[in-house]
Structures are given as structure tokens and as C-alpha cells.
Write a protein that binds this DNA or RNA. Structure first.
Lengths: 229, 229
DNA sequence: ACAAATTTAGACAGGCTTGTCCAATTCGTC
DNA sequence: GACGAATTGGACAAGCCTGTCTAAATTTGT
């Protein structure tokens, strides 16, 4: 025994208690997504989590509370992933195009295409109308802050002379729209794009983005273009 | 009596038979979208359609058949709207930016934001996994042909010297992604953007699109740009 | 090894839904 | 006005699901 006794004597959570709770939430996320809230069945969730039905009720009380727990869990993890990824935005880019493509791929892989991202998106689409306040929280902390943070990064790149941007918020939304442009249908059907599809969409999107927003340079052959009102 | 007797003497459909069928399908679309397939309840559909439950069964036989009828109906109407709208694409544009914005607004208003568009999208997102072959049909006839048709129009504009495009298919997908960039969240929650939001998103999207793809002109006047290759 | 807490399997009531059946009624047509 | 088809409202069985309860089995901490 390598843990000091006496440090946490009271209400020490039994070992697998929390582990089972996590299993249940994970299984519930999967079943809620596959079957919808109304179609999800507690027996199936219990079976998929490898616990008995009663355990599900012991931990979460009620189908609706379980659903809320699932959404909160997914929201939290997704937002954490989003901010970790935004933190990797290229501030002093060596090769702006390559850096933006890599960033877009990371964003897709870690936040949008992964299990949590796909599940959360589907739950929002399917049940968003039924739990407005639950998803309002997501909306504010997730996409709202994502766009702001991204806009701030773009503004910085513009200030540093790498981009020529009118409204950074618009540019941020358009950036995300562009790098996902070719994945829309796959997302709509709940599918998972291949690594190659993600890369191609990001590449095409970033190239178009830079065609629109790259600082107009005056290379040797075109030196006169910059003088313009 | 202006119809020749004897032409269709047998099984002549009574007048309001078809009207009720339509009512039922419309109500079913609404309820399936709001509640999901599993949560949709035939009594509610019947009530919302203003008919008795038995009539629903008389017309469509079965919950699943009713669902299929709803999806086919929505798919058909949406595709019809899409092609009508694509036909209004500006081929010989007077003012390319204004024409593309107007086209984007029409596309949004008539195909994506309207009742059928929102309903179909939600059903695809929620139940796409459960009826792959049903939505495969939509996928092929809807977005697939939309993109091809749009790509062909862009290629034509490029050939006429109005745009400078690498891959027309990519440009078509990016065009749609850009003009919807600011409506994503609203769509995700199943909401209906205001006319002003649609216009703003389209305007911002088209401007960025043209920044990336407009034929590069020589800024002096614009007289020299055409002599090229 | 012992005691407490947790988990399990199963039964169970209550409620809701689907799909069918049927008699009474309404509607459209002649 | 009369006929036939469609519609209605309601009853009905069968099935499924939620949420509770219980007693037995298992796990956990000491």
C-alpha cells in the first residue's frame, strides 16, 4: 500500500464506482446518438456499459438526468479540446499555408471528427430544441468563444502583416466553413471522414482562404499592384 | 360534367382523399422532425393533420411506411426547388457580385431555410444512419447534382472570363460553404435565420469568394486585363 | 477474515404506443 | 334523396419501456 492512510478517510469513493459511472455515461452517449432520446433504452445502455440496469438508476437517477450528464460531459471535453487546439494556432508562421493547413487538420481531427465532437453535434441537432438552456451553455462556451479566439488570432496575423482582413470575426467563421466545405455531407450523415479527406478539404479551404485574405505582396513580376486607395 | 365518363370509372379517387393524404404527410413531417422517429406518435400526427388515427393507417399503412413517404416527399420537393434555383444562376452577369449575392439569397431562402429544407436536413441528420438506402437516393439526386450543376455554371463563368477557378467542383462546394458560414449555428439548432442574417452571410460569403476567385484585373483602369494566354 | 457498501438479476406495476377491429357517421356522386 | 365509399371515435390486445423493489451475490476497506 503506497498511499498514505488517513489522508482521505471520509467518503472515499470506492474504486470502480467512478469507473462505472464513466462507463455508463459513455455508453449512454453512444446509445442516445444512435437511437435518439426517445428511442434510447436504459436496458441497452446498461448492457453496453456492462452494468445492471439498477446501477444506471443508482448513479444517475433518471433518464433525463442521465441525458443531461451526457451532454455536460461531452460539452466539457469538446470545449477543452477546442481550446487546446486553438492554443496551437500558428502565431509566428514559418510557412503560413502549411501552418494553417496543419492547424485546420488538427481542429478537425481533435474537435470535430472525433467521437465527442460527432456525438455532441448529433445530440445538439436532434435534441437542441428540447433543452434550450442546456445547449445555450454549449453555444456560449463552445462556438462563441471559438470564433472569438480564432478571430483574435487572425487579427494578430493581420497586424503582423501576414493577412489582409476586414472583419476578423467574419474571417474566422469563413475559415472554419472553408476547411470543412468538403466534409459537410459526411458530417450530415454522422460519418467519419478519412484522414485523406480531412487533409484535402483543409488544403483546398486554406488555399482559397489565403487567396482571399493573404496580404497582397509585390513579387518581382507584379510590383505595381499594391498602390491602391 | 366536363370529364368523359368511362375513362376512369373504377377506383376514382374521391376529392379530399388526396388532400387528406397531403395533410397527413405534412403533419408527419413536422412531428417526426420535432420528436424524432421513435418519439413521434401517430395520435399526435393525426391530431395535427386534423384526421383520425385510422385515416393515417388507411393511407400509409404503418409508421415506417409513413416515414418513408415523408422523406420521399421532402426529397422530391427540395430537389425541385434546388434545380429551379440553380436555373436562375447568373450566366451573363451584369454585376457579378450583386448577382451572386442575389443567387445565394435565393438558394438559402428557397432551398435551405424553408420548411422543406430544414425538415429534410433534420431527418437526414437524425435518422440517416437508420435508412441508408433512403437517403443515398437523396444524396445522389440532391447535393451530388447540385454541386455538379453549380460547378458547371462556375466553369462557364470562368470560361467567359469572369472568374479564375482551378477546380470548379471545389469552388462550388466552397461557394455554398461560404454563403452559409454565418448561419451554421442557427441551422444546427434547427432555427430559421432572419432575412437580414441570410443577406449578410451571403454578402460576406460572396465577397470572400470573389476575393479568391475573381479574375485578376489590372488595376490601372480595367482595360488591359482581357488579353491573356 | 469481517463488515459495510455496492452491484446484480429478476419480478413487478403503471403508463404509453402501435396497429386492428367495428359500428356509427359523414361526405361525394348520381 | 339515395347509394357507396371514406372517415370517425372508441375500444381493444399486445408489446415495450420506465422506474421501483427485493433478496442474493459480490466487491471494498480495514
Amino acid at each position: 500500500m503506497f498511499m498514505k492512510p488517513g489522508v482521505s478517510p471520509d467518503t472515499f469513493p470506492p474504486r470502480s464506482h467512478e469507473a462505472k459511472r464513466v462507463s455508463v455515461v459513455d455508453a449512454a452517449a453512444s446509445v442516445f446518438c444512435r437511437e435518439g432520446y426517445a428511442g434510447a433504452n436504459i436496458d441497452l445502455i446498461a448492457a453496453e456499459a456492462g452494468v445492471s440496469r439498477q446501477t444506471v438508476y443508482n448513479h444517475h437517477g433518471d433518464k433525463e438526468k442521465l441525458f443531461v450528464a451526457v451532454v455536460r460531459d461531452l460539452t466539457e471535453r469538446c470545449n477543452a479540446g477546442i481550446f487546446a487546439t486553438i492554443a496551437s494556432f500558428p502565431d509566428q508562421p514559418a510557412d503560413l499555408e502549411a501552418d494553417l493547413i496543419a492547424f485546420a487538420v488538427r481542429m478537425n481531427r481533435n474537435c470535430i471528427c472525433n467521437r465527442d465532437g460527432r456525438f455532441l453535434r448529433k445530440l445538439i441537432q436532434a435534441e437542441g430544441g428540447r433543452y434550450p438552456e442546456l445547449f445555450a451553455e454549449w453555444r456560449e462556451h463552445g462556438p462563441g468563444r471559438t470564433w472569438s479566439a480564432l478571430a483574435a488570432r487572425f487579427a494578430r496575423l493581420a497586424f503582423a502583416g501576414h493577412l489582409s482582413i476586414g472583419d476578423p470575426d467574419v474571417a474566422a467563421r469563413q475559415f472554419l466553413a472553408l476547411v470543412n466545405a468538403e466534409l459537410q455531407i459526411t458530417f450530415m450523415l454522422g460519418g467519419m471522414p478519412t484522414e485523406e479527406e480531412v487533409l484535402r478539404s483543409a488544403t483546398n479551404g486554406v488555399r482559397t482562404f489565403l487567396s482571399a485574405f493573404a496580404r497582397k505582396k509585390s513579387p518581382a513580376g507584379k510590383q505595381a499592384a499594391l498602390v491602391h486607395a
